[in-house]
Design a protein around this nucleic acid. Structure first.
Length: 494
RNA sequence: GCUCCCGUGGUGUAGUCCGGCCCAUCAUCUCGGCCUUUCGAGCCGAAUACCCGGGUUCAAAUCCCGGCGGGAGCACCA
């Protein structure tokens, strides 16, 4: 009998309960401490940047780059530069320069420096001259399609081979009125067609919102970015995977200039479901009158989310938890909302909200006092108190009424029991009875409109004492968290 | 089509570099139970994952090969 059979027999003979003692022990959990994002390679002061195009205010999609860059800035006591990339005169909303700064302020992110690319055009001119002189760039006035077709075939355009002095002369002619482009030479044999020779400058005659007609030759994205990242001392470029090819292009500029490259980190793409983030589309809908503005509660701009009552801290928490991996991820409103709820729950006061109110008259021998806590757990917030005299109007939510009999006894939450008799609510005691339906109610006629992000609007009544809660986040019990704004309330989440 | 990146529960994430302490972490969601003057929160419990197939190895989420799947780029936009 082999040793294996012996062991099998022995094990089979054991009692089930004895066997349990052989199960591996559950390891006790190691740590509840929040996990950290991976460290950065660093030998020097960390300098990061956030670089949006000023085409509109910031939206949810921008907050990942912002949160991650700001995280590392704080972790390494580094520096964060806000760089406004306004080198396409046709794609600029002049208001965006201010809107973006406001959005950063609201998020609680402080840029140590603000740079506007359109103020740095001379720098770009100087550096491209150097690259041309080194033979790293050329000017062509050829037809765009012809030039592109040659690239597709991995062939050099004749203009590519001219000597640097000639290229400089051509460059000057672009500054003084000719049409053409400046191209960075890369490897024409590159198997990736996206990486063969890319345009560094082009002519745009349209006036720039800030520089007006001062310039006509404008740098394109990859050129301006590479120059600025170096000139501004950026040590770590942290951005989305969609920039993978751009990184390869930008490296050519570092190579020609003989510059040390920053560390490039690319995180995966985020898809944000059921959310329109396209600035141009939102702008169109605003001008069509469909949306009330950049802060319409149906869109996912920072200002709209702020108006709904999200805490700015939620954004950084969410993105830090999502990490910097190159996997593409799906944004989860559910997880995001759960994090936000964690932050606001303990400090949000509770209010009754009565939708589709039905009017009743309260009847009792004496005045009854409502004494309801502002928060069920956080007793420090105290109570809201209200005297209800016989003959007062009481409003009850229609949806709840439809579930009960006309003559039922119900409990008015935090007040007393009543019997429904026609349109009268007759006092029937204070005793807490099990199983009796409990109703939220309102005595006043304070109307409020509740706006949901899906566009629906619910009409209802709210407790009278909301004035001092204007512009704060409260919880309408059983409905969800909302932010109050005058006679409107914006739905945040459950 | 070409080039590049990436595949762990419904979702996000830890572990992958340096194979074993991983019958796989944490959060959220879902479902029970407790508590509660409805909701929420809290507490207790349950369910759910290593894309597939080969290989290497005593041992594979982890290393190798091949599939499959997802995403991005191929602009005189950013």
């Amino acid at each position: 009998m082999s040793i294996i059979d012996e062991v099998i027999d022995e094990v089979n003979s054991l009692d089930v309960n004895d066997l349990k003692s052989y199960l591996p022990k559950k390891k006790k959990q190691a740590k509840a401490e929040p996990k950290e994002l991976p460290p950065l390679d660093k030998n020097e002061k960390v300098v990061l940047r956030f670089a949006p195009g000023p085409s509109g205010p910031l939206h949810l999609g921008h907050t990942r780059a912002l949160a991650l860059n700001n995280y590392y800035k704080k972790r390494y006591n580094g520096k964060l530069i806000l760089r406004l990339e306004d080198t396409n005169p046709n794609a600029i909303d002049p208001e965006a320069y201010v809107l973006i700064s406001e959005d950063l302020d609201w998020l609680g992110i402080e840029a140590d420096e603000v740079i506007t690319q359109s103020e740095r055009i001379e720098t770009y001119y100087e550096d491209i001259r150097k690259i041309i002189l080194k033979g790293g760039a050329y000017v062509t006035k050829s037809d765009a399609e012809e030039w592109r077709e040659l690239k597709r075939q991995k062939k050099a355009h004749p203009d590519r081979e001219r000597d640097p002095e000639r290229q400089i002369a051509e460059f000057d002619s672009l500054l003084s009125g000719d049409n053409g482009i400046v191209v960075i030479k890369t490897n024409l044999d590159d198997p990736n067609p996206a990486l063969r020779d890319f345009v560094a400058f082009r002519v745009v005659e349209d006036p720039h919102p800030l520089q007006k007609t001062k310039y006509r030759l404008w740098p394109l994205y990859n050129f301006a970015v590479a120059i600025d990242d170096y000139r501004l001392g950026i040590t770590h470029v942290l951005r989305g995977k969609d920039h993978l090819n751009n990184t390869e292009k930008q490296k050519w500029i570092y190579k020609y200039m003989d510059w040390k490259e920053p560390e490039f980190i690319h995180y995966g793409l985020v898809s944000i479901p059921k959310t329109n983030l396209k600035t141009s589309k939102i702008r169109q809908s605003i001008s069509d009158g469909e949306y009330s503005g950049w802060d319409d509660c149906r869109i996912a701009t920072i200002r709209a989310l702020a108006r709904r009552g999200y805490s700015s801290e939620t954004f950084s928490k969410y993105w830090e938890a999502s990490g910097v991996k190159e996997v593409d991820i799906k944004f989860s409103w559910q997880n995001f909302d759960a994090m936000n709820k964690d932050l606001i729950d303990a400090k949000s006061k509770r209010l009754f909200f009565v939708s589709e109110p039905c009017e009743y008259i309260f009847s009792s021998k004496k005045t009854i006092t409502k004494e309801a806590p502002w928060h069920p757990d956080n007793k420090k917030l105290g109570n809201r108190v209200e005297d209800i005299i016989s003959g007062s109007k009481i409003y009850l939510p229609n949806a709840d009424l439809s579930k009960i009999q006309d003559t039922s006894e119900i409990r008015l939450k935090n007040l007393c029991n009543v019997k429904i008799n026609g349109n009268t609510l007759e006092f029937s005691g204070f005793e807490h009875k099990k199983g009796i339906p409990i109703f939220q109610w309102c005595s006043g006629n304070r109307k409020i409109e509740l706006y949901y992000p899906d566009g629906t609007i619910s009409q209802g009544l709210v407790e009278d004492n909301i004035d001092k809660l204007d512009n704060t986040v409260v919880q309408f019990e059983r409905t969800g968290f909302v932010r109050l704004e005058g006679d409107k309330a914006f739905f945040l989440h459950r």
